[in-house]
Amino acid sequence: MLELNGVSKTYGDASVVERTDLTIPAGRTTVLLGPSGCGKSTLLRLMIGLIRPDTGTVLLNDTELTSENALAMRRRIGYVIQEGGLFPHLTAEGNITLMARYLGWNEQVVGQRIAELADLTQFPRDGLRRFPAELSGGQRQRVALMRALALDPDVILLDEPLGALDPMIRAELQTDLRNIFRWLGKTVVMVTHDISEAGFFGDSIVLLRQGRIVQQGTLRELVASPADPFVTQFINAQRSPLETLRGNFE
C-alpha cells in the first residue's frame, strides 16, 4: 500500500502539488488523470523519491520514504516513463538485468528471470540481444516494463507509458499491459491524460487539477456523479470519432 499524507511541492512561486492526501490500494491499478500541469507526474516522482516533498510524507507499506532509504525503497518500485528512458549503450537484456547484476545475482537466476519476463511481455528472444536503437517504439516500452519488473517490485509506476506510440500499437500494448497487471496482481499507478485509457486500466481514477485532487472513483462514478463541473468538462473534452460522425449528419 502506498500512502501520501499532506504532501506538497512548490517550484519557485508555482505550487505544483498542494497538500494532498492519497491512498493507493494494494494489488489494484490506480490511474492519475488530468490535464497537462495538473501535478500528476510530480505525484509519481514524489512516490519514488526522485523529488522530495516540501511538506508531508510518502509511505510504502508503512515505511516512510526518506533520503536515507530512498535507494533501497526504489528497488521495491518499478518505474516506466514515456519514451522508455532505456540506456542506449546496453542491449535490451543489458537494460533489464543492469540492477540484478549490480546486486550480484547469480547468472542462472538472472537467465531465468529474463526468460520469465520475455514470456510475460511476449517479447521475442532474439530481440533481447538488440540495442534500443534497433527496436520499435512498442518493443522499447516492453523492454522498459521488463526492466521495471526485473527485481519483482511491490509497486509499478508508469508515467504516460504509451504516450509516444501510434494508435494501433498503443491499443495492442494497452491490452497486453492490462493482462500483465491482472496476472501479476501488483499495485500499479499509471499517469495519463487520456480518459479512455484511464477507464480501460483504472480500477480507480484520481482526477487532478492544478495540484489538487478533484475526484477519486471509478469511471462510472466520475461520469454519473461528478464532484465538480470540471469533471464533466474534462470528460466531454475528449470527443470520440463516432460522436463526430453523428454530429456531421445532424
Binding site: 528497488r75 519514451e83 540506456f87 542506449p88 540492477m99
Partner: peptide
C-alpha cells in the same frame, strides 16, 4: 545525457557512483 535516462538510472535504485560508472560514463565515452 537526457534527463529521462539519468532519472531511469536513479529510479532503479542505482547509487550515484554506480550510475556514473555503468550508465553515464559509457554514454559519454
Amino acid at each position: 545525457i537526457p534527463l529521462s535516462v539519468r532519472e531511469s538510472a536513479a529510479a532503479l535504485g542505482l547509487p550515484a557512483g554506480a550510475s556514473l560508472r555503468l550508465v553515464e560514463l559509457p554514454m559519454a565515452s
